[in-house]
Design a protein around this nucleic acid. Structure first.
Lengths: 96, 96
DNA sequence: AGTTAAGATAACATATTTGTTATCTTCTGT
DNA sequence: ACAGAAGATAACAAATATGTTATCTTAACT
């Protein structure tokens, strides 16, 4: 019977739930989302304003910023573009 | 009555269908997918092999490589990780 | 001609995201 | 105390991606 987890940290540190590869993947994802939030806040834009700019609704933005969903790539681009950012592929282990 | 389009190029050049912002977004997306395909082929890995490595099924890989779907971010990471790549955010108009 | 491998596709079920609308909580400022 | 703004969340419908299984087409090779 699995322990109920309440936080992201609890989930991530439970080795019976998350493989190393999956953990790495989630951390990359979290870093990406984190930078997106930084970009929005640095420009003083609220989720509701960004919703208007991007066409993505505020609840969807809230869900993805709090990592409650794994957004589709076009949703990410819709949000990043009005913030002046885009996505690119880079080799793992190279520094940002 | 809308003309039926058969190719990506026809679709992209139809201004009644695609706004400038959307066109830019789609081109970024296409560039990203293109690099993913390059990475796979440069390593001599087939879609079926990559399916085993990534846990994403071959039909899903085929669909996203041919831009028939807008994959979820975690699907992209699952595929990119065994290829040795990851995603990062960068300002628009900076060169790769 | 036959065989094998690769990518594309079909059809359907399942899972997940996103839209929609509304509300809740918290914080800030008055 | 009140009002307004911000982010989080709830509930449900609609849209879309993914899994599953199988087949098709094309190309390369014998």
């Amino acid at each position: 019977m699995k322990k109920i987890v309440n936080t992201f940290e609890e989930y991530m540190s439970d080795e019976s739930r998350v493989s190393d590869a999956e953990r790495e993947r989630i951390l990359f994802q979290a870093a990406l989302i984190g930078k997106m939030i930084e970009a929005r806040e640095a420009q003083g834009i609220s989720q509701r304003q960004l919703a208007k700019l991007s066409g993505v609704k505020q609840p969807a933005i809230a869900r993805l910023e709090s990592m409650k969903s794994s957004p589709q790539i076009d949703t990410l681009f819709k949000i990043l573009t009005p913030l002046g950012y885009t996505l690119s592929i880079k080799p793992i282990s190279k520094r940002a």
